[in-house]
Amino acid sequence: MPDVLGLDLGLANAGAASLTDRGSVDTWVLHTDAPDTPSLDATLGRIDRVTRWALGFVTTGTALAVVEAPSFGSDHGQQHERAAIHWLVVRGLRRREIPVATSPPTTLKKWATGSGRADKAAMKRAVAALWPGNGLHRVTEHEIDALALAGAGAQCWCEWPGPWLGPSPSALASITWPENP
């Protein structure tokens, strides 16, 4: 059974979601604590941990991975560290011959809610409505974003029939898609 993997990557928190062509949903979250004494080695260790964790979800059935692109316009967080994680994960996926799509952060919000400025609560409501009965009201914002990424990939690139209850297909145009399968 093929699956689409969605990855919302960050240094402190990361989310992953897998969506199968039969509508099965799984989500995971990783929290990495900042060290008491910041150092280059500690930062590299956290980057490596997130990278290994994300690549650990790849299976022989992974048809596509949709990764949230870094938000370089963001005023907070560690932009360089998040970009490092992004590129290491993308490289790892490509080395495993997994097609990779990258999505700007506002795109998944627009796809799920119709607004690229949707807040976390609106995202959670919209994604939970797409996959009711999966306990998504209990998952983190990182898992919600990862599932939205997987859903966008399943709808557009894989062309799976799905529970698409009104997401904005026009938002999908700004995702960088791999060449057709």
Rank of each mutant, 00 (worst) to 15 (best):
L19C: 09
H86V: 00
G153I: 04
S115D: 14
G153V: 01
R96H: 09
T32L: 14
M123A: 03
D33N: 13
T107N: 04
T43V: 14
S71A: 15
G166S: 10
P161H: 06
S168P: 01
A17C: 07
V58H: 01
A146Y: 05
L5I: 04
D8V: 00
W157Q: 08
I47Y: 12
P163W: 03
A63F: 10
A16E: 10
S71K: 10
A152Y: 08
W160L: 01
S74Y: 02
Q79G: 11
E141Y: 07
A148K: 08
H80A: 13
A14N: 03
R138Q: 08
D119T: 00
G116N: 07
C156N: 12
K110R: 15
P99R: 00
V4K: 05
K124Y: 02
A128Q: 11
R22N: 08
L44F: 12
D75W: 03
P178R: 01
A129Q: 12
L5S: 05
A129E: 10
L9C: 07
R95E: 14
F72E: 07
T60A: 15
S103E: 14
L165K: 15
Q79V: 12
I47F: 15
W160T: 00
E81R: 13
P161W: 09
S71L: 11
P35N: 11
L88A: 12
G116C: 08
P2M: 07
D75F: 03
L136F: 12
R82L: 01
G15L: 01
D21M: 08
C158D: 00
T106W: 14
W53T: 12
L136Y: 08
V50H: 06
L9T: 06
A112S: 15
N180I: 02
A16I: 12
L5T: 07
N134A: 06
L136T: 01
Q155S: 11
A148I: 05
G153M: 09
E68N: 08
G92Y: 00
D119R: 05
G114N: 03
I98Y: 06
S71E: 13
A112K: 06
P70M: 13
K120L: 06
K109V: 00
S24L: 05
A148Y: 01
D21C: 11
P2N: 06
G92V: 10
H80G: 11
R95C: 03
V127R: 06
E68K: 04
D145F: 02
R22Y: 04
L147P: 14
A63E: 08
A42N: 12
G23I: 14
M123T: 00
A148L: 13
E141L: 05
A101S: 09
E141C: 05
L30G: 05
W160V: 02
R46F: 13
Q79N: 12
G23M: 10
T51A: 13
W131F: 15
V66L: 12
T62W: 07
V58T: 09
L44G: 14
A65F: 12
S174W: 10
R96N: 09
T51V: 13
K109P: 01
R49P: 04
